[in-house]
Design a protein around this nucleic acid. Sequence first.
RNA 1: GUGGGUGUAGCUCAGCUGGUAGAGCAUCGCGUUGUGGUCGCGAGGGCCGCGGGUUCAAGUCCCGUCACUCACCCCA
Length: 449
Amino acid sequence: MRPPADKVTPISGFPELLPAERLAELHFLDTIREVFELHGFAPLETRAVEPVERLLGKGGDAEKEIYGVSRLAGDDSGRDAALGLHFDLTVPFARYVLEHAGRLQFPFRRYQIQKVWRGERPQEGRFREFTQADIDVVDVGELAPHLEAEMPLVIAEAFRRLPVGEFRIQVNNRQVPEGFYLGIGLTDVAGTLRIVDKLDKIGPEKVAALLVEAGATPEQARLALALADIRSSDLSFVDEVRALGVSHPTLDAGLEALAAVITVGMQRAPGTLVADLRIARGLDYYTGTVYETQLVGSEDWGSVCSGGRYDSLASDGRTTYPGVGISIGLTRLVHLLVTKRGLTASRSTPAAVLVAVVDEESRTRSDAVAAALRSRGVPCEVAPTAAKFGKQIRYADRRGIPYVWFPGAGESGQDQVKDIRSGEQADADATTWDCPAADLRPTLLTSQG
RNA sequence: GUGGGUGUAGCUCAGCUGGUAGAGCAUCGCGUUGUGGUCGCGAGGGCCGCGGGUUCAAGUCCCGUCACUCACCCCA
């Protein structure tokens, strides 16, 4: 049954914000973009669709997550038949690199901030349409290991400029658990990772039981859990792993790579990167280093920024372009801060000034004031009606606009501007008045943290 | 895809063993005829998600359906 056409209802997983919240999100966007550009990442946007074939096979059960695109009235036998909306920005980027390799300079650094779509069941902080802010570096043939440390440090720099509170970027290398599992005789690496990953939710006893159920011996389960328990913000994790007495060449390679990343992190941003041998998630094209980011005190929100190294995602069969990248889940981050920590903007409009209108005959005078203010960079709007001044002030108050401008209100007919928070009103000239810098743009507010 | 919960005013919700729809907030108006916020008074606003059934009578009970939501799966 279809509801009446004039009944509007939200669509689950397709979030929409109110203006003040959107202003807060834009502040995040601007800040993130500025930091990305400070680090020399080139801007890039890719089309929203990719051939379904390319999206598939890049992730385990990506298929059920992909939204197909079709024309309502079309028979889909034509050339558009197999298009799907991208579910992340890394797979399209890999395709872009292959397509434009001849015109790019390597190593190629780019940032990309776009909507992505995933056909999953929405929950708190999980959406079907959301924005990711992504940085990646790809090179030809070989990729310098220091880039694996750089990616999360760029994110850390952006986060430090935003009201997200304390955060931790957890780093692991998939070769560590892989080599470790193989070293103790567990050959189903992916399956084991999936079970161990439930540790936070169901606890060690149940994880051990599941591992045994999946064919591991109790001793293998014990060792897998012991590995998952290791974390450190320095290099002590290496000795802790060694102490478990397992050896395998893949494990050695993973430990070395992870130690290198943590070493750089310790030098450049002490305490920010944490080696955590439990984390292993993310899309399954990752082959080495992987990242997850949690806000301290809000770990139950899940990761707000993840990524990793992928060695074979971009390959034309002859040349391979290994890459590493990390992606901020902007929609999740902002949505959770808005709903859980009261993040919002100080007003619901960019306007710092409402220019009052005395009567409709003098509206052009108000328009001229507004034009003068705008020419000097002061965002403003003119009152929609020449209502009583009380109403015009209330119009500004409701929107959080701090100043109301009264043309010709002074004793000798000069303009006046009123700060409606303090009630102070003084003579002013639109061609010289300085809007206090703190009031020029909406500022961010949080109720806590 | 699997399992649970919930659908009543713009928002948050109340509505008992069935008896013709309520509160707070928000909005608008007036008190206050061109300087707001407080206070007082008043007004507007409801296919009680949709369809069917039981009944003299359904917001209330039953069935179906859709939507939202939580958990699983997966993930930002």
